[in-house]
Design a protein around this nucleic acid. Structure first.
Lengths: 161, 161
DNA sequence: GGTGTAATATTGACTACGCAAAGGAATTTA
DNA sequence: TAAATTCCTTTGCGTAGTCAATATTACACC
């Protein structure tokens, strides 16, 4: 089956890469999340949601589509948007032709808040990443991670539908 | 083939890489975690803890050192080990020379359980990763992620201390 | 039209884990 | 030796997200 090159319990490259992915996530989210939360009162996924919505046509998107973009479950999206709606950053709108679907729509305050947070947050991300990687490496890292199932999906699709 | 297009046409490479790191984590942990949980009743961090302990001298390690290895906070470690102790996989031992420190020590059942889970889990990890990356790419991915602060620390050090 | 199936969204119960606060033990400083 | 500080750990509380179950709507087929 696996022609493991060593008889000794040498960690396979796949496991090493996976473990480091876990650790990289833990290490980076902790600092970025804390900063975003204390400076702008947003969680990372709050920000990602606003980010995705801000780029969508009309600042609105089907909730189910947003879920796919953020890789959240339906209930995760419900709860995420619950918070954003209560904060007045997103409003819920309905689809006249299909009563099942609901849209999440950026409010003017939401867009404003996003733009305010975006500047600092993107700066922090760049500081963190560009300190350790060149531009080419960042592209390459992004390309590689995008190969994992589900990661790159909908990256280009501005599916407002 | 860089698919460097996103909702915003001007997304910096750093942000794209970061976003994909988030998504890669979400996508991969969801499937691996569910499998590990249902097949062996372990969370990903449960497994990582057993993994680290199983490679440590005497199967034991200072809790604080384990926390560093898993990138968990002190309270996170307390709660993680709580579960493992209740499951009988890890036992708590004390340090005779310093009453502040406690060790987490793998029990025989813990080692057994780890080895049972390890085979399947490592297989799943390899299946997932090796399907999308070559061996060289996995090494490179691991190298790159290891450059982020805190990620590679203590990777080789079997610090039983 | 009636029935079965798929899609969307919500809810309840639960897990995981972070932060802040606090306690006990060790070490340093005075 | 006393006091201050630092280290390790736990605890209370809050947040974020999952899954399973449920309700509603849409649609396909007979």
């Amino acid at each position: 089956m696996h022609t493991q090159t060593s008889a000794a319990p040498e960690t396979p490259s796949a496991v090493r890469a996976w473990t480091r992915l876990l650790r990289a996530h833990a290490a980076t989210t902790r600092v970025l999340s804390a900063e975003l939360q204390s400076d702008h009162g947003l969680s990372l996924n709050d920000f990602e949601a606003l980010y995705v919505l801000s780029g969508a046509e009309g600042g609105r998107m089907k909730r189910v589509e947003l879920a796919r973009r953020l890789l959240l479950t339906p209930s995760g999206i419900t709860r995420l948007l619950e918070g954003l709606e209560q904060a007045g950053l997103v409003r819920r709108t309905t689809c006249p032709t299909d009563l099942r679907v609901a849209y999440a729509e950026l409010t003017p305050e939401g867009r404003e808040q996003f733009e305010a947070a975006s500047c600092a947050h993107v700066g922090s991300i760049r500081d963190l990443m560009e300190e350790h990687f060149s531009e080419d490496e960042l592209d390459e890292l992004g390309d590689m991670l995008g190969r994992l199932p589900g990661v790159a999906e909908g990256d280009d699709t501005c599916a407002a539908l």
